[in-house]
Design a protein around this nucleic acid. Structure first.
Lengths: 126, 126
DNA sequence: CCCGCATATGGGAACTGTTCCCACTTATAA
DNA sequence: TTATAAGTGGGAACAGTTCCCATATGCGGG
């Protein structure tokens, strides 16, 4: 656990905004100005593999990361791509489909809601 | 409706594999060898905007397209990124969450299942 | 406390998927 | 036809990410 990895983890855990790698990089640079972008990507990947953090499977052109590893779903703003959490019980109705779908060995699923976040809705109304 | 656009639409409609832009390009080139990749991207985007086709909001590094515009969900193989359809009733339980979630104006949602497709499962077992 | 070594880092080059630009062509309607 | 709005091909430019490698660092054993 290097200084850099620690800083990246702290940054992610203290953020509630599901940042992209570039946003994590920008944040961590305030404490470690010489950290490289490659290091940020490398650590985000290895920590995600080890289950310390979560790499979100959402649409959009950039990957997003989450310091909260418990299972939950997301809303993404179709305009600014901001991602927020959705509180929601595990839907047991969905689980029924996990076993026998197109011959797949289904191991998980995720739900993404799409809509306008409060900021963008307000901006649109003006 | 140009020759090129027609060919792209035909290619998509005759495929059940949710191809990426590059795969569509490869397919269309059999009929129109001089078509450019830019034209494929341009037409996929405009047809998606006009609702002729669908741009899938799935994870993975490449966008995928679907000639079938009716609402349905998807399974993606975690190994080869192949995408298949999931037959599933609209889950009215989920609809309840659409109105008041984190202040968002939610307009849609999608579900993506993740797992191993038959081919990859078989390959893994060997 | 220091050594050795596996592992990580910084910097930049390379890669992949996508978008953009522009001179030229084509579809469409008058 | 011809005018013109829209689309095309080719390639350059971009953004996000991964890779490479010489150097540096964390860490367990002596």
């Amino acid at each position: 656990m290097t200084r850099q990895r620690r800083a990246i983890l702290d940054e992610l855990r203290s953020s509630s905004s599901h940042p992209t790698a570039q946003e994590v990089y920008a944040g961590v640079r305030k404490k470690l100005p010489r950290i490289s972008l490659g290091t940020v990507y490398r650590n985000l990947d290895t920590m995600a593999e080890r289950g310390l953090i979560r790499k979100l499977e959402v649409g959009g052109s950039q990957k997003r990361f989450d310091g909260e590893t418990s299972k939950h779903h997301h809303v993404r703003c179709t305009e600014c791509n901001r991602v927020d959490d959705v509180e929601m019980d595990r839907d047991s109705g969905l689980q029924r489909f996990l076993c026998d779908t197109a011959g797949y060995d289904v191991v998980s699923y995720h739900v993404e809601f799409l809509g306008l976040c409060p900021r963008c809705r307000e901006a649109d109304e003006q």
